[in-house]
Nucleic acid binder design. Structure first.
Lengths: 211, 211
DNA sequence: AACAAATTACCCCATATGGGTAATTTCATT
DNA sequence: AATGAAATTACCCATATGGGGTAATTTGTT
């Protein structure tokens, strides 16, 4: 390991020259941090960041040619021990959740004050996940049930068995009712969920957290 | 509104008398905060917290009779404008994600220092979601793909259409191949996913983030 | 008491699905 | 060039599924 011990190696991927320079200067001038590599496009970053052994990479999302999200996806496979923090102005659900799915461990908006940015870099290498408060709330809210279920208790019960791939007869036996009853319930479930097949029902059940 | 303006009203639900007292004292003695209600069991809290107009409720999880998670679920429906922060020693996935699904907006471990606890209370009413760093990482990691897909590109493509409830013929037409080809692919998908029906395949696809 | 919703049950029937088996072609990696 | 995985096509058959309809009973809430 050729790193100075205790010094956090950071790289920046950001197409705005001014912001990129500000970030690298800020980080490199801060005690305990170093920033010797920065990129104005993601394609170059992806091809060059391998083997440089960075602790943290700050990644913009809107970038020429390749998005920062795509970049994280590719880089996370090549350098899985490096932590990625998105640093962006985007705060739509797609940007947020696609970034996290791609492998980002933090998500900060660009109005994050310098001191907090440095704090966030420390936090992510200590196993945390720094997020701007409003982003954190969005993430947390994604776990909540959207709205209440249109299904009755019995229907919900049957929907759950439906999701397990049980057929009419098995469901019927398990609930001590006839197969015809199960079919009747399923018809009602489909009507209420506006679907017309098991597959769609299962998908909706999981996505809408009905089960 | 009978509140003092600018004063944050907090309630505590915690069965350990010592901790409960420490928390209420800490909060009530801090400028800008008040804590006039605390409960040592969740059942009482649920029946009495309605109409008291709290801004934030700190909720333990392990409680006699009714868990804090169940409590949040019930209370969040009755007082949706109140924010809930779990304050607990539990850091298993079930405790975390069940709490968030129930409607908690924050999740702190009990070793959180007093100053940070007060900061977190402010953060949650400002639309944030305070979390202990390790909890935040757990939440973020839940979005990552578990491991790589065992499916080929074509199979993944078909699995997606399967999830939409498309039948063999529609899928075949869309991919410009024969229905028999689609069937063959689906058989391979089922074999690789260890399932034997559309419903199970859809469930696994979504849960394992294969689509 | 009255009414809506939920639950139970049954019919017919066309189509979709899943299991089994087999063979050919394409394509990438060795 | 060769080996193997992936993609492609095809067939048979028993069963499951979904759409159509009808109707009685129970439960829950005005």
């Amino acid at each position: 390991m050729e790193n100075k011990p205790g010094v956090i190696k950071v790289a920046v991927v950001e197409d705005d020259a001014e912001i990129r320079q500000l970030l690298t200067l800020l980080i490199d001038a801060s005690p305990g941090f170093s920033c010797k590599h920065s990129y104005n496009d993601c394609k170059t970053a992806v091809s060059e960041l391998f083997g440089l052994d960075h602790d943290v990479i700050l990644m913009d999302i809107i970038l020429p040619q390749m998005s920062g999200i795509e970049g994280v996806k590719l880089l996370k496979e090549k350098i899985p021990n490096t932590d990625f923090i998105m640093l962006t102005v985007q705060e739509d659900d797609n940007s947020i959740f696609d970034s996290l799915c791609a492998g980002a461990s933090g998500y900060l908006l660009k109005d994050t004050p310098p001191a907090e940015l440095l704090e966030s870099i420390k936090e992510v290498i200590n196993g945390g996940s720094p997020m701007t408060p409003s982003i954190a709330r969005r993430v947390i809210d994604s776990f909540k049930r959207t709205d209440e279920s249109p299904l009755s208790k019995r229907e919900t019960e049957i929907l759950e068995l439906l999701c397990d791939g049980k057929n009419y007869k098995v469901i019927a036996d398990q609930l001590f009712v006839s197969g015809n009853t199960v079919r009747a319930h399923i018809k009602n479930i489909y009507r209420k969920l506006h679907v017309s097949s098991r597959a769609e029902a299962v998908k909706k059940a999981i996505n809408d957290k009905l089960v």
